[in-house]
């Protein structure tokens, strides 16, 4: 197995074009597990750790551009106020050691339905920056996942960044696991209020072949939420939202939980996170 060591994105893209089967590796929190368990024997690893540009974030066109290798721990500590939903999701990833190594770019590359960052990326209208020697293309998160552990990447492409709009309203992320930390999601849910658009974004994890949005639930809230009003939400509205989120999922029974539990838990998380974000929205100046 070759170990390719590019020093720049340009060099990395050239190597990826010439060795399309090379597997990119940054923190190695997914890739090394697959290698150690002999699930995968790629001809080459493409080491992204020497490319400084992939380890930084900046603001581009009003969105936060997070380099593919920026570790979760930095998102938690440095981007929590701008991207609260993604920061909360990042906090639930693995252990401190894993958060120091793992990155959103890796989560997107693996495209596991259980990846913790996906629901938050979906709810916040994030866009994935994908590059190759042929150029750069921008793919919204909602179009990025195409199957179980499959994404839209072509063999010569690399994920170079993810662009996330700064929060314009309250955001929440909630994940069920059977341990109080360091656990793979049984199911997860993210919500983001976009008051300026009078719209709510959602993301569901670990409850379908891919991470997905709950479109009907989003449309329901767009029509029903009393934007600008200081009123609380009716319990019936919260519940209906929960039901629509659960309905959007197509979970399975597996070693981590049953399909019916997952649906139930999604409904509970959806109505709780909605009530938390709405309370925060009411407390802020937005509806004064």
């Amino acid at each position: 197995m070759d170990f390719l060591n590019p020093g720049s994105v340009t060099e990395a893209l050239e190597l990826k074009a010439s060795v399309p089967d090379a597997v990119p590796i940054a923190g190695g929190t997914d890739v090394m597990v697959e290698l150690n368990f002999d699930h995968r024997r790629p001809p080459a690893l493409l080491n992204l750790n020497r490319i400084a540009e992939l380890h930084t974030y900046s603001t581009v066109d009003g969105r936060v551009r997070i380099g593919a290798c920026v570790p979760y721990s930095r998102i938690v500590t440095e981007l929590g106020s701008v991207l609260p939903g993604l920061a909360m999701a990042s906090r639930t990833v693995g252990s401190p050691q894993i958060r120091n190594r793992g990155s959103v770019g890796g989560n997107l590359g693996a495209a596991s339905p259980a990846g913790d960052s996906h629901p938050a990326l979906l709810a916040t209208d994030a866009v994935v920056e994908i590059a190759s020697t042929r150029g750069v293309r921008m793919v919204p998160a909602k179009d990025f996942y195409v199957g179980v552990k499959r994404n839209v990447l072509e063999p010569d492409e690399l994920i170079t960044a993810v662009h996330v709009p700064p929060a314009t309203g309250p955001q929440q992320f909630s994940k069920v696991g059977t341990r109080n930390a360091m656990v793979i999601a049984v199911c997860a849910f993210a919500i983001a209020l976009h008051p300026e658009q009078q719209r709510v974004g959602t993301g569901i994890g670990s409850a379908a072949p891919t991470p997905l949005r709950a479109h009907e639930a989003e449309e329901f809230l767009a029509a029903e939420l009393p934007w600008g009003s200081p009123d609380g939400l009716l319990d019936s509205l919260n519940r209906r939202f929960g039901e629509l989120v659960a309905k959007a999922a197509s979970p399975i029974d597996d070693v981590r939980g049953t399909a019916s539990y997952r649906r139930h838990a999604l409904a509970v998380m959806a109505r709780r996170t909605l009530s938390w974000t709405w309370s925060e929205y009411r407390r802020t100046a937005q509806c004064a």
């Binding site: 992320f173 696991g177 930390a181 999601a185 709780r272």
Partner: peptide
Amino acid sequence: ILQLPGGAANTTHGEG
């Protein structure tokens, strides 16, 4: 939340 059921995964703020 670290002291509540669900812990770091932010599943309850006391509800239920």
